[in-house]
């Protein structure tokens, strides 16, 4: 199996509106999740404050980088990235936090949000595979790995 994407394949990926829509959805998801994680970073309180404050900071910083990567992949496919806070929030459809919440509720709510993002990333990964766009598929796999690791860490925090 070839490990590079031929120019012809990239062309078919560019034409695939489903893939572009799926990528834009992952972009919106990641941006919305970044906002929620940032909110949690600011407002978390309790005995786990220092750990969670630091962990959430690392997470939203990594999500900021991810958003840029996904948007630039869309441009590489000659599609446009969606933007604007309202549009991104509406597209993502993640439930907003009703701060202040208990520290464990922030963690649980973020796990639920990560799961939604992972479901959309999985769909984008599979669509990229269908059109043999290996670069996009690789990006989605990388994102999925990061989210899975983050969910594992958040779940571990809740274990008693």
């Amino acid at each position: 199996m070839s490990t590079t994407t031929s120019p012809q394949t990239t062309k078919s990926a560019r034409k695939d509106t489903r893939l572009v829509e799926a990528l834009n959805l992952t972009l919106a998801d990641s941006y919305a999740l970044m906002g929620l994680t940032h909110l949690a970073h600011w407002n978390v309180e309790g005995p786990g404050f220092f750990f969670l404050h630091k962990a959430f900071e690392e997470q939203y910083e990594q999500l900021f980088e991810a958003v840029d990567e996904i948007a630039e992949r869309l441009r590489a496919l000659e599609a446009y990235a969606i933007g604007g806070l309202g549009k991104l929030a509406q597209t993502a459809g993640l439930e907003e936090f009703k701060a202040p919440m208990a520290q464990n509720d922030y963690v649980a709510a973020l796990i639920v949000a990560h799961e939604k993002v992972m479901a959309d990333l999985t769909r984008a990964r599979d669509l990229a595979g269908e059109v043999n766009d290996l670069e996009t598929q690789d990006l989605m796999i990388g994102r999925l790995q990061w989210h899975a690791k983050t969910v594992w860490m958040l779940k571990s925090f809740l274990k008693n």
């Binding site: 649980a108 709510a109 639920v112 779940k155 008693n160």
Partner: peptide, 13 residues
């Protein structure tokens, strides 16, 4: 809830 916080968060939601 103490033992299964995430499950009870989902049930609460």
């Amino acid at each position: 809830e103490v033992k299964h916080y995430l499950a009870f968060y989902r049930l609460r939601s």
